[in-house]
Computed example of a mutant assay.
Amino acid sequence: MTLQTTMAEALRLTRTGDLTGASALLRNALGTNPDRPRPPQPVAGAILPAAIIDTPAIGRFDTRRHNGQVGALDYMLYRPAAAAPGMPLVVMLHGCTQSPEDFARGTGMNRLADELGFLVAYPRQTQTANQQRCWNWFRPGDQARDRGEPALIAGIVNDVLAAEHADPARVYVAGLSAGGAAAAIMADAYPELFAAVGIHSGLACGAARTLPEALTAMKRGAAQRSAARANARFVPVITFHGDRDGVVDEANAQAIVTAAATATGVPVTIEIEDGTAGGRRYTRTLSRDAAGRILIEQWTIAGAGHAWSGGDPAGSYADAAGPDASRAMLRFFTTHRAPG
């Protein structure tokens, strides 16, 4: 591996939160030359000096903790080097067995945050709350406003808005699998908080209220959905789902889209386009309002399984093939702002 390649890889690892791995690469690369000074080992949240990596400065990936009325929850916050007041905030909810660091690697969101300029918060589910570190999207106590996990995640959003002076009109939430189901719940429980939601390989809000119902919904699609709350604000949604997903059936993506279409409250025009990206075919279905704005965007990836499309295989449940779900979600997000 050349020094230039090593430096690029160290930058990628640092952006995804793997500071130990980045430091080890740099030590190995520079340690063969005794006349060259060894770089200091980075600490959590540190910015590598420009003298070590000849690229623009990278951001901070710090552990923080939310303490609220319903409890406490840790999260990771990524701040680009160019972080400034008024930036958008993207909340990323990992899937089962994953962690914020792993999810950041697989989705590449920290790298995109450096490139495009936004904050990224990654709430951390604990093994105490769920043995597989899944968000408990199927429990009634974790499906409602001001209760359980939704209240904790909303608390994290409010903490970041206050501490970082992020733009409250440009807060977005996205998740994978159980995290996708949790993202759907967040949009339903706190529609005033989120300008748009991204759901990858997930399920609709209210798809299940018990573990047996959850297992059935994952395999066959949801048999029910919770009744829409009165006067609830519609939250624009983008979904990604592989048509070979053996963990969460593709029928769940259609359930999400159907529920969203009902909630729009306005006539929509449907457009369907087929294409190829990253070596996989896809179908992209758009629902536009009378002004031409895309309110619902559904991606179905041919041949894809239960993994983040166009992701980085360095993270779990990430498939390098297929369209780049992270970029597509961010493009969709930036076209929407929360009213008021």
Rank of each mutant, 00 (worst) to 15 (best):
T2M: 05
T2G: 07
L3Y: 14
T5S: 09
T6K: 06
M7S: 05
E9L: 14
L13V: 12
G17Y: 06
D18Q: 12
T20M: 08
A22L: 04
S23Y: 06
R27E: 15
R27F: 15
N28F: 09
P34D: 11
D35I: 13
D35L: 14
P37W: 12
R38M: 15
Q41C: 10
G45A: 08
L48D: 06
P49M: 02
P49T: 06
P56I: 12
G59T: 07
L77D: 02
A84L: 09
M87Q: 09
V90Q: 00
V91L: 15
C96L: 11
Q98L: 05
P100L: 10
F103M: 11
R105G: 10
R105V: 13
T107N: 04
D114Y: 03
D114C: 08
L116G: 05
F118R: 08
V120P: 03
A121M: 14
T126V: 01
T128E: 13
W137S: 05
W137E: 03
W137T: 07
G141I: 11
Q143Y: 02
A144N: 02
R147S: 09
R147D: 02
R147F: 05
A151I: 08
D159R: 10
V160R: 11
A162V: 11
E164T: 08
R170W: 01
G175I: 09
G175Y: 00
S177H: 04
S177W: 07
G179Y: 02
A183W: 00
A184G: 09
I185T: 15
M186P: 00
A189T: 01
P191F: 01
E192H: 14
G202M: 00
A204R: 05
E213N: 08
A217G: 05
A217M: 04
K219M: 10
G221V: 09
R233G: 00
H241E: 03
A251Q: 11
A251F: 09
N252T: 03
N252I: 03
I256Q: 01
A259D: 10
A261G: 11
V268I: 14
T269C: 02
E271H: 11
E273L: 06
E273W: 01
G275Y: 06
G275L: 04
G278E: 02
T285I: 09
L286M: 01
L286E: 00
A291P: 03
G292K: 04
I294K: 00
I294F: 03
I296V: 09
A304M: 11
A304G: 02
A304P: 00
G305N: 02
H306L: 12
G311Y: 13
G322A: 13
A325F: 12
A325Y: 07
P339T: 10
P339R: 11
